[in-house]
Simulated scan of single mutants.
Amino acid sequence: MSTNSKNSAAYHKRASAKEKLCRYAEAILDYTKSIELDDIDEFDREELDVTNSGCLLSYFHRGNTRLKSGDRQEAVEDYTEVISFRAITTDDLMIIAKARRYAEDLESAIRDFTTTID
């Protein structure tokens, strides 16, 4: 059997399994490795298929894991990274607003929730 330590999808899937076992610190490390291996530079951003990007999924899931583990500000940063690649949707803004609320950045949360209402 051959192995591949540069397989970002394997790191992402292993992180997902660790997250389900509430092994958040280990999951965050694996999501981070997946992001590093599948990093997107500025040139790639213009041609990125955001619906099928492992890197963006890893940022999103790492944000979820960070939120569960109490790293709320870092979760906001991951979600913000995801939306930097595409036009923001109401769902995106709701996720960020919730993370900001949990991070006790209440003024920003209120602003984001208000934007989803308007």
Rank of each mutant, 00 (worst) to 15 (best):
M1W: 02
T3L: 10
T3M: 09
S5M: 06
S5E: 15
K6P: 05
S8K: 06
A9D: 04
A9Y: 11
H12W: 15
H12D: 13
K13P: 00
R14D: 03
A15R: 04
A15G: 14
A17W: 13
A17C: 15
A17L: 14
K18D: 05
E19N: 10
K20T: 04
K20N: 15
L21K: 14
C22W: 11
Y24Q: 08
Y24D: 14
A25R: 03
A27M: 04
I28L: 02
I28Q: 00
L29T: 05
L29N: 08
D30Y: 02
D30A: 00
D30S: 08
K33M: 14
K33Y: 01
K33S: 10
S34K: 05
S34W: 08
S34N: 07
S34I: 05
I35H: 03
L37N: 01
L37S: 04
D38Y: 06
D38E: 14
I40C: 10
D41T: 02
D41F: 12
E42N: 07
E42I: 06
F43Y: 15
F43H: 10
D44V: 04
R45Y: 06
L48F: 00
L48M: 09
L48G: 00
V50A: 00
V50G: 02
T51I: 14
T51R: 13
N52L: 01
N52F: 14
G54F: 05
C55S: 01
C55P: 00
L56G: 08
L56W: 01
L57A: 07
S58M: 04
S58C: 01
Y59A: 05
F60E: 01
F60M: 12
H61D: 12
H61F: 13
H61P: 03
R62N: 08
G63H: 08
N64W: 04
N64P: 00
T65P: 05
T65F: 10
T65Y: 03
L67D: 09
L67E: 15
S69C: 13
G70C: 11
G70M: 10
D71Y: 06
Q73P: 02
Q73N: 10
E74S: 11
V76Y: 09
Y79M: 01
E81P: 01
I83F: 03
I83T: 09
R86L: 00
I88H: 01
T89N: 10
T89K: 03
D91C: 04
D91P: 06
D92L: 01
L93H: 05
I95D: 06
I95E: 07
I96L: 13
I96K: 03
A97M: 08
A97P: 06
K98R: 09
K98W: 08
K98I: 13
K98N: 12
K98E: 12
R100L: 13
R101T: 00
Y102S: 06
D105G: 01
D105Q: 15
L106R: 03
L106E: 11
E107F: 04
S108Y: 08
I110V: 13
R111G: 06
D112G: 08
F113C: 02
T114L: 09
T114C: 14
D118L: 06
D118H: 13
